[in-house]
């Protein structure tokens, strides 16, 4: 397998990458780890004319504490996040999520920014992004903006990211009491259902991925929760158009969403 012809440009700074994006327009794609883009290009499902490599831009792969938040650079690999002492200490649910992605080789190369921009409806991160009220910090030629998870994920492979924008970092409030549980697809290991639950004081928040065409915040569960995980989890798919595929029908997927919501709630400390 071999991709259709394209031009490759390595960007050495964010401003250079943005200028290139601006110049090449919709014909250009950014590559970081490449673990979503390269297979699609080889299968010729995606045929960009220009590929802009942002993988080696300095400063995009750091993990920092900033007050109540962690700021995760877009180029941080899943493995880096899964094993980062700071993440494990301040936001273990994110480390847990990162560790559940793919396999070790994929985690060593795939990046959080790439995964979020690709927006696979069965990707793992979106559940925790939503549950934690994280913000996706993006930059375009006209400036920076910060997008909330619920605005960011819009559909299958569809996000609020403009075609001239790139993800710079993810800003996530620290949370000591959170859990991500996942029912993996036996082949792809993507989430058939993935549930992130976070407890903050008296409140809880729930993000579900794999269930619908994009991850969502299970607000009906959050409202209904009064300490009874089972009763609240019955609302996991309220108002949601649940996906159906060869492995899991929408009925079964709905059931799994409830089971994993209940399990995640029960696992909260």
């Amino acid at each position: 397998m071999i991709p259709a012809k394209f031009e490759y440009i390595k960007a050495s700074s964010v401003s250079e990458a943005l200028a290139l994006l601006d110049k090449h327009g919709d014909d250009a794609q950014l590559i970081a780890g490449g673990h979503s883009l390269v297979p699609a290009m080889k299968l010729r499902l995606n045929q960009p004319g220009t590929v802009i490599d942002i993988g080696k831009i300095p400063g995009l792969n750091s993990i920092k504490e900033d007050g109540d938040d962690l700021v995760i650079g877009a180029n941080c690999t899943h493995h880096q996040i899964a094993t980062s002492p700071i993440v494990k200490q301040k936001l273990n649910v994110l480390a847990q999520t990162a560790k559940s992605i793919g396999d070790i080789q994929v985690r060593n190369k795939g990046t959080i920014g790439g995964s979020l921009a690709h927006a696979d409806p069965a990707a793992d991160y979106p559940a925790v992004i939503l549950a934690s009220d994280a913000k996706i910090e993006v930059e375009g030629i006209n400036g920076k903006r910060s997008i909330s998870g619920s605005d960011f994920f819009q559909g299958i492979y569809a996000t609020a990211l403009g075609s001239h924008e790139m993800i710079i970092a993810i800003r996530i409030p620290k949370a000591s009491n959170g859990v991500y549980l996942k029912f993996s697809h036996p082949a792809s290991r993507f989430a058939v259902v993935g549930c992130a639950a976070i407890k903050n004081g008296a409140g809880i928040s729930i993000g579900l991925t794999g269930v619908a065409d994009h991850a969502y915040r299970a607000s009906a569960v959050e409202r209904a929760y009064d300490g009874d995980a089972k009763a609240a989890s019955e609302h996991a798919v309220d108002g949601v158009a649940v996906m159906s595929d060869n492995f899991a029908s929408s009925e079964y997927r709905s059931h799994l969403a409830k089971v994993f919501t209940e399990r995640a709630l029960s696992a909260l400390g």
């Binding site: 490759y8 390595k10 590559i31 490449g34 673990h35 390269v38 297979p39 590929v51 490599d53 993988g55 070790i104 080789q105 994929v106 060593n108 190369k109």
Partner: peptide
């Protein structure tokens, strides 16, 4: 450890 089929040589 990485999967070399999904990394471009130029990367």
């Amino acid at each position: 450890a990485v999967k070399s089929c999904t990394i471009l040589a130029v990367q």
